[in-house]
Amino acid sequence: MKFRRPLAAIGILAAGLMAGCGGSGSSSDNRSLTIYSGREEEIVQPLFETFEKQTGITLDVRWGKSAELAAQIAEEGDNSPADVIFSQDAGALGSVASKLSALPQTTLDRVPATFRDGDGRWIGTSGRVRVVVYNTKAASGAALPDDVLAYSTPKYASRMGIAPTNASFQAFVSAMRITHGDARTKTWLTDLKNNGVKTFESNRQIVEAVAAGEIDYGLVNHYYLALVKAEQPDAPIANKFLAAGDPGALVNVAGVGILATTERAKDAQTFVDFLLSDEGQRFYSTEAEENEYPLVAGFDPAPGLPKLSELVGESFPLTRLADEEKTTLEMIDEVGFTV
């Protein structure tokens, strides 16, 4: 007798769980999209909210690391519940390109060909530049080398941080392999390791460690500076932009693709077009705390940033990053940065 009551209670609780918080279980006539987002929630949430308000389409977002979500899509195969992948790295998009459907030409034409897939299956929505972040008490930007190869010496490496499991770092290593060849890249990585480079989980942690004086330099994306400055306005940190075309100044993109298996292709297209709309791009020029580069012509980056055209040198199509990823990961493994 007494045993029945807990059973009834659990039934009610379970029902509450399903009803109250079952985001994914929403019915199909309710217009909603499932987004796998490698972009951080704090960064893109305002953009997502604007989209929801304008279109009435609800976004169910699975937040994670770009590569992790790409691997998950690969794992899920035709069963993937995702409609759209929003990645912070071209490599991750490239690795699932075969599972994405081609975007219409009008969409693709919004950004320069460098920043999208050759077969039109994914498109960049904003740009991020690799930089050396440094502690202004320890160094002056003008005196720092503008060739990333110079940073593997003990002078820099012993006071430097990298994030070897981070997709942006891996894309940068791929870029170095394309520019300088495998042998030179491996030597460079080995030097870094032997000269005592510190490894971190994320770009963000590196910039914080530089701000705290734990290290003096870090290989990161440019926009983390603005994010950390927002929390610690007095932090003694600045970005050193390297020479145009240097792999250490790689211009990578955050981008988006629509899963070929989606049943909500039309709404997914609306979402992609929103990200590339004037409003979506203006977000990066003015609103976004993180100072990413808008990619559509006519939108300038946030004040104080060099123009994108000054950074892109003799470049290669970003599609190549995905092809190089496997070898790059193996190299990072071999050097012993990852297990």
Partner: peptide, 13 residues
């Protein structure tokens, strides 16, 4: 931690 590093680096699980 290494397992999570592998998962986050994606591609080959």
């Amino acid at each position: 931690r290494a397992i999570f590093g592998r998962i986050e680096s994606g591609v080959d699980r």
